[in-house]
Design a protein around this nucleic acid. Structure first.
Lengths: 224, 224
DNA sequence: ACCTGAACACCGTTCAAGT
DNA sequence: ACCTGAACACCGTTCAAGT
């Protein structure tokens, strides 16, 4: 596309910066999906020529990484150190899930570029480990507990956009057990006034934390 | 690209079919990633012109869906009905993980096109629900248990390609607890002769099944 | 320093023309 | 029925030319 509104050459005032680019990229993903976040579309949205972007950002991948970092920075890790472990973990997990639900357009992005190595990650790791340690969980169980939680949160976040009713059988006559279980689950969610996805997350987190506590939390190390 | 080896017009014998296309697509993803699986590259690999593919498959998305179905069909659900619930679930979970590890190139694909609506899924759902039901878990807990397991498996499968050593601190002096936990975990994996990812999956599955059992498995319904 | 616009080497998909 | 090849409307990225 040719821009008729601006002539070649450096403009009097700077049009772009990384912030504006990130903002526009988010809007673009929201309106056209990850694959619709093309450099050309981004440029169009910013009323700029595609090549202008490359003065601020080295590649499309870098734009996506920028969005990643901003996302990670929004996750609440404040519970670690100020609350009991289980509450802190729960706060962290819910915050992660909530942030991702606010921006479901980021889901494919989070998969493509895992959070594992952003600066936020190492901070969280240290805090979580300190929490387990203070609660006297055995050394060998700590990394596993952390990782298993992350895995579940990650999976839940990705599953979130799953349409409702996945568990309803197409032919209830032929799947009476599934139909009954599905109805019972829906009833519980309605009773508690929770979206099904929230109920699932709550239950899964509860099961995990309960299981981990049963396996390690109630035990003192036997060696030494 | 112009094919010099073949002239226009219908060839004497059929060159393509959906099977050959699926096979080549898998090879292409393996060698060039999901984004490298372009219709043109696929055609090149099959020594055919790109447009020839459209006689057998309506779109690139359909090629990917084809791979999905083949993947799903390879997951072992034979334990349901023939083994105790916990073993059947474990077999299913491990099979899913193993299949995906054999074809890590499918990970981005599984995310892009969730399994939730393939024919295999409803079969699994029915079997799992029947298992929980036979074990007298309360109706309201069944869908949640199933979903939570799926979520964990899904997350673990996606996390699998995570490089090792993510949990080792960059600066052990400043993160002594993390360093100690990390070493203890590695020692356990070595002791048991398991890859770290396998140990994590085993532990997570164990924690989940234990937690779920604690919450519902040991209880009789109190109503009615 | 920071923009434009042309250019290069790609895409997925359609369709007329061939056998 | 099932292939080719041209065409259409796209990509990401580079770079000379402009101010």
């Amino acid at each position: 596309m040719t821009l008729e509104s601006r002539r070649p050459g450096r403009p009097k005032e700077r049009i772009l910066d990384r912030d504006r680019i990130a903002e526009a990229a988010l809007a673009q993903i929201r309106s056209a999906g990850l694959s619709g976040m093309t450099m050309r579309a981004l440029a169009r949205r910013l009323k700029v020529s595609p090549s202008a972007l490359y003065n601020h950002v080295p590649s499309r991948a870098a734009v996506l990484a920028l969005l990643q970092e901003r996302f990670a920075a929004g996750i609440d890790t404040s519970g670690f150190g100020s609350e009991p472990l289980r509450e802190a973990l729960s706060r962290w997990a819910w915050s992660y899930l909530t942030r991702l639900r606010e921006r479901p357009e980021l889901v494919p992005l989070i998969v493509a570029v895992p959070l594992a190595h952003t600066p936020y990650t190492s901070l969280v790791y240290q805090r979580v480990v300190a929490g387990f340690s203070a609660a006297h969980w055995p050394d060998e169980s700590i990394i596993a507990s952390l990782s298993v939680l992350e895995t579940f949160i990650f999976g839940a976040a990705l599953d979130s956009p799953t349409p409702e009713g996945v568990y309803e059988p197409r032919d209830p006559e032929r799947s009476p057990l599934l139909a009954r279980a599905s109805a019972a689950f829906a009833a519980t969610a309605a009773e508690r006034g929770l979206p099904p996805g929230d109920l699932l997350f709550e239950i899964g987190l509860d099961a995990l934390l309960t299981g981990m506590h049963q396996l390690w939390g109630a035990t003192r190390r036997t060696r030494g």
